[in-house]
Amino acid sequence: YKPCFVCQDKSSGYHYGVSACEGCKGFFRRSIQKNMIYTCHRDKNCVINKVTRNRCQYCRLQKCFEVGMSKESVRND
């Protein structure tokens, strides 16, 4: 598999339409299922990588959408 499109960590396969790691897969699923609203405490362009991905949930979710993750493919079960 290609590296995670969101944070470049080791991917566990294709999730919600893109190559993603377990961490970003779970983060995206929880964010969508719980209708989470995050805020960025900087200027909405935080670097998201394996080391920084937990620092800003707003920018991490934005990057999930930017790389093509589909909220329609998240099931509500």
Rank of each mutant, 00 (worst) to 15 (best):
C64H: 02
Y38N: 05
H41D: 12
T52V: 10
H15N: 10
I48S: 04
K34Y: 11
K34G: 13
Y58Q: 06
C21Q: 00
R55Y: 13
Q57M: 09
G68W: 01
C56L: 00
I48M: 12
S70A: 09
M36P: 06
K2L: 07
Y14T: 12
E66C: 07
Y38P: 06
G23Q: 13
S73F: 10
K71A: 10
N35F: 06
D9V: 02
G68L: 01
Q57W: 14
Q62C: 05
K34W: 12
S31Q: 05
Q57G: 15
E66H: 07
F5N: 04
M36N: 11
K25Q: 14
T39V: 12
F28I: 04
S11Y: 04
A20H: 00
F27S: 01
R42D: 09
K34N: 13
L61H: 03
D77S: 08
V6N: 01
K25E: 12
N76K: 11
K50N: 12
M69V: 03
C56Y: 03
N54S: 14
R53S: 14
R60C: 07
H15R: 06
R42E: 13
G68R: 02
V67N: 03
G13Q: 03
P3R: 05
A20T: 09
V6F: 04
S73R: 11
G23P: 13
R75N: 13
V47R: 09
I48F: 09
H15W: 06
P3H: 11
H41G: 10
F28W: 07
S11E: 09
N45C: 11
T39C: 09
C59H: 01
T39Y: 11
G23F: 05
N45I: 12
R75S: 09
C56G: 01
P3W: 06
K10S: 15
I37R: 11
Y16C: 07
C4H: 01
N45D: 07
C21F: 00
F28S: 01
C64E: 01
C24Q: 03
Y58S: 08
S11C: 04
S19Q: 12
Q8E: 14
Y1I: 10
E72K: 06
N45F: 06
I37K: 14
F28M: 04
L61V: 03
S73T: 08
D43T: 11
Q8P: 01
R30D: 15
A20V: 09
G17R: 05
V18L: 04
R75K: 10
H15C: 11
E22I: 05
I37P: 08
R29Q: 13
R29N: 14
C7Y: 03
F27T: 00
S31G: 01
S73V: 11
D77K: 08
N45E: 12
F65D: 04
T52Y: 00
S73P: 11
N45V: 12
K50D: 15
Y58L: 03
G17K: 07
L61F: 07
D9T: 00
S31F: 06
K2S: 09
F27E: 01
K71M: 08
K34F: 11
K50P: 13
I37N: 12
I37G: 07
C64F: 00
F28G: 01
V67M: 09
L61W: 03
S70G: 07
C56Q: 01
Y16I: 07
C21W: 01
F5H: 04
K10N: 14
S31N: 03
G26F: 06
Y38M: 04
S11K: 06
Q62L: 10
C4K: 00
G68I: 00
N76T: 07
S11N: 15
S31M: 04
D9E: 10
G17S: 06
Y14G: 06
T52L: 12
K34C: 09
E22K: 06
K10I: 15
R75T: 10
K44E: 10
N49P: 04
C56T: 02
A20Y: 03
V74T: 10
K50F: 15
F65C: 06
A20L: 08
C56F: 00
D77I: 09
N54Y: 14
R53C: 13
D43H: 05
C56P: 02
K34L: 13
S11L: 06
C40E: 01
S73E: 13
Q57T: 06
V51W: 15
G26K: 04
R53L: 14
K44N: 08
R29T: 15
R29Y: 05
C21T: 00
N35W: 04
S73H: 09
L61C: 02
Y16P: 08
S31R: 03
K50S: 15
M69N: 02
C24G: 01
N35E: 15
V74S: 10
C64T: 02
Q57P: 14
E66Y: 07
C59S: 05
G23W: 07
Q33C: 06
N49G: 06
G68T: 02
S11T: 06
C59G: 02
Q57C: 13
K71F: 06
V18E: 04
T52W: 09
R53E: 14
G68C: 02
I32S: 04
Q8N: 10
H15F: 08
Q8L: 09
E22F: 05
R29C: 06
V6D: 01
G17A: 05
Q57H: 13
K63P: 01
C4P: 04
F27N: 00
Q62F: 12
T39W: 08
P3E: 14
D43R: 10
V6A: 02
S11V: 06
S70R: 09
F5L: 09
C64P: 02
Y1M: 13
M36Y: 04
R60Y: 11
C40V: 01
V74G: 08
S31E: 03
P3C: 08
V74A: 12
S73W: 08
C24I: 01
E66Q: 10
Q57F: 13
E72T: 11
Y58K: 07
K63E: 03
G23I: 05
Y14V: 13
Q33A: 14
V74R: 06
G26Y: 04
G13L: 04
C40P: 02
L61Q: 05
M36R: 09
S19E: 11
V6I: 07
R60D: 00
V67G: 07
H41I: 09
S19Y: 09
D77A: 07
G23T: 11
G23D: 15
C64L: 02
S12D: 15
V47T: 13
Y38C: 00
F28T: 03
G26W: 01
G13E: 09
C59Y: 01
K63L: 05
M36V: 13
C24N: 00
F65T: 10
G26N: 15
S31I: 04
A20P: 02
V74N: 09
Y58P: 00
R53W: 10
Q33R: 10
N54H: 13
